[in-house]
């Protein structure tokens, strides 16, 4: 069995974001990058399945992006992936979701993956498109928003999370794409020995030009902070002073403090 996990590297969401020179996306200076949270669940699910099947499946971890994304691939390998694929693209952030999906599909088409796992969405762009579009391009069955996953004999049973806590159970046959939602499992922390082992695992580099054959369908025109909706009173400064001011406000504005 061959499993592909697609992971995206995203900036730390606690950063301050400023537009870059193009004015349509964020400047990367001073940003720390990490693996998209949703994709950690995808890696974990692949590794769990590998363990369930006695180590037989081969898990490939793929990321499209600049050289920095190799760090994300290494994380996937240290969690238990077998080999990495780095689709090298210094301008990956300029591609739309459609192009990114078409790049991944162009790579996967000859590889015969039985199962492709992606995150439900990325934390930075958050289109929730790439996984489903890969499935459409490869003509694979696809289920999104997985919070439960079981595999037996070429059949995947997925619990999909719907609104209001309701879930829907679906069954699909491999080859299949499943997009992973938060809480699907408990992503493991790589151990030091596994981090060392990961350093030795193969990461194949493919220049994006070999895989990109599609035009952009959505063009970015602007990037900015949202208009401040609220009129929150912002309390900064000394801790003791913040405490006093908050208590003052609560006494004034709510009936909660007597």
């Amino acid at each position: 069995m061959k499993i592909l996990v697609c992971i995206k590297q995203v900036p730390d969401m606690e950063s301050r974001f400023k537009p870059d020179a193009s004015g349509v996306w964020f400047a990367e200076t001073d940003l720390a990058f990490r693996v998209n949270e949703y994709d950690e669940y995808a890696v974990e699910q692949a590794v769990l399945l590998k363990e369930q099947l006695g180590g037989e499946p081969e898990v490939t971890v793929l990321s499209v992006g600049a050289d920095r994304v190799v760090e994300a691939i290494k994380k996937g390998l240290s969690m238990g992936g077998d080999r990495g694929v780095h689709v090298q693209d210094a301008a990956a952030h300029l591609k739309d979701s459609w192009q990114v999906a078409s790049i991944i599909a162009a790579y996967a088409v000859g590889e015969g993956f039985d199962l492709i796992l992606t995150g439900l969405q990325s934390q930075d762009r958050g289109s929730a498109q790439v996984g489903v579009t890969i499935a459409e391009l490869l003509d694979y069955a696809c289920a999104t928003t997985a919070v439960g996953f079981e595999y037996a004999d070429g059949t995947v049973t997925v619990k999909r999370e719907l609104e209001g806590g309701v879930k829907g159970t679906v069954r699909l046959k491999t080859p299949a794409v499943v997009t992973c939602q938060l809480g699907l499992n408990q992503p493991r922390y790589p151990t030091l020995p596994n981090i060392m082992k990961a350093k030795k695992k193969e990461v194949r580099v493919i220049p994006v030009a070999e895989l990109l054959h599609q035009e952009q369908r959505v063009a970015p025109v602007e990037f900015r902070a949202p208009a401040r909706k609220g009129s929150a009173v912002v309390l900064e400064g000394e801790l003791a002073d913040q405490v006093d001011r908050l208590i003052g406000i609560l006494k004034d504005k709510t009936a909660v403090l007597r």
Binding site: F26, G126, V218, E222
Partner: peptide, 24 residues
Amino acid sequence: LAEGGGFERPCLSQKMRQVVKPQG
């Protein structure tokens, strides 16, 4: 809705906004 056929959408975990224009 943004001007000129564009759409505003959130990005970076809702911290920022992006305006994009679909083609076709």
